[in-house]
Design a protein around this nucleic acid. Structure first.
Lengths: 232, 232
DNA sequence: ACCTGAACACCGTTCAAGT
DNA sequence: ACCTGAACACCGTTCAAGT
């Protein structure tokens, strides 16, 4: 990774177009795709754009502002499903497509969960999702059910992102659990160990297991919400 | 905050006891309670212990090792409920008590979700929890149900922690949503806005609402798991 | 074995000065 | 208005040298 060493003559006198906030966010989104939201520095963005670090503060603001810009742009890539499908299908599809987009930009899922509706690009999804829940009969509970469903799904994506930055931790975890498979004094850990032992360490298989647990989580959360409708 | 300026003569020649790994983690746990897991630096721990930064590496390792030490110590504070209560009660109580402990040490919840069984102190809880689920009839699904329930509860605590470090974001969020309360073109946002408008901004009331949403999340997740038992 | 003291290669942010 | 160039106050980590 090259870093810290901008050019010699001014951009204007070299006939270069001026930097804009948009171009800065472009570069930040690109870097986020390559190394995650915590994997780049303001100085690295500056180097990539061939300007001095102070320029980013001038056009966008501090690091937090750049991160929010990246978050908004990534969220706007998530398609909003039509509102004329059954509520469970609507959430299944937005969560599955949302996960695909978010995992391409590690760290954004966490921000989305934390700042939520402060991200302008999230508003159309929120509006449609709550409307779908209202139509399904959740009444005044629709907003909190929406928040519950999104938290369960996208905080899991945030955890998946974080695991990605501890590449060794996942393997250690598997080995640690598998070691308990025959431990008769700890039947709970033994059950988890048996499950862990049956899992492959092949990256593709690991990814498939992650996807399967995500699907499981989404279905259980939907069941949890549905219980509010049927139990009364 | 004082920082960077240790003493003049060596600890040994001043009759001071040697630093140990345990004392370093003690100081780190204390700092985590005051400012959160991302709120301190290795250098600040060193200053508090009146030694040079290199000493921490010598006794514990890098920052990651210190963080894992803190995580293990905090997790060991969470009491494991007896296994002779109904499974829903067992999870309700470990999650509620777990939240109380974790929120005193912001940032630890996130680590727990990411590294899971790599934290030795988490093993008794995992063992008992899975045993309780086996007894409840979840069979081979017990380990994944356990993971699902803990993720839903403690990733929410992690989000609460993160919100705490954006003190302004919460207020902005509330105002942003409340502004939609009368927006007839966006019925979903209007519903969320009405809910947001009814919420107080008094800190104690905000905390109570957070606790209530946590309880809601736990109950919905338990319902989602229970659906696996009743539907077949 | 334990600690000092310094060095190294980074950070984000700020700001006077130039064009 | 836009950018340069430097300064400031931090980081985590490493390591020779002392005791």
């Amino acid at each position: 990774m090259s870093d810290s060493a901008p050019r010699r003559r001014s951009r204007a006198s070299a006939g270069l177009p001026p930097i804009t906030a948009e171009k800065i966010i472009d570069a930040a989104v690109e870097l986020t795709g390559e190394r995650g939201l915590d994997g780049w520095s303001i100085r690295q963005i500056a180097t990539r754009l061939d300007v001095w670090p102070g320029v980013i503060a001038h056009h966008v603001g501090d690091r937090e502002a750049v991160v929010m810009g990246v978050t908004d742009r990534v969220i706007s890539r998530i398609p909003v499903p039509d509102d004329d499908v059954p509520w469970r299908d609507w959430f299944r599809s937005v969560m599955s497509e949302g996960r695909t987009v978010l995992r391409e930009f590690p760290g954004v899922a966490r921000r989305l969960c934390v700042v939520g509706p402060n991200v302008p690009a999230a508003l159309p999804t929120i509006d449609t999702g709550i409307r779908v829940l209202l139509k399904a009969g959740f009444g005044a509970h629709a907003p909190e059910v929406y928040r519950y469903l999104f938290n369960c799904a996208f905080t899991l994506v945030a955890v998946e992102d974080d695991r990605g930055s501890f590449p060794t931790a996942r393997a250690e975890m598997g080995r640690a659990m598998a070691a308990f498979a025959e431990d008769e004094t700890h039947p709970g850990l033994a059950a988890a160990g048996t499950t862990a032992r049956s899992r492959s360490t092949d990256p593709a298989a690991v990814a498939a297991q992650e996807t399967e647990f995500f699907r499981f989580t989404v279905e259980r959360s939907l069941d949890g919400a549905e219980a509010m409708l049927t139990s009364r």
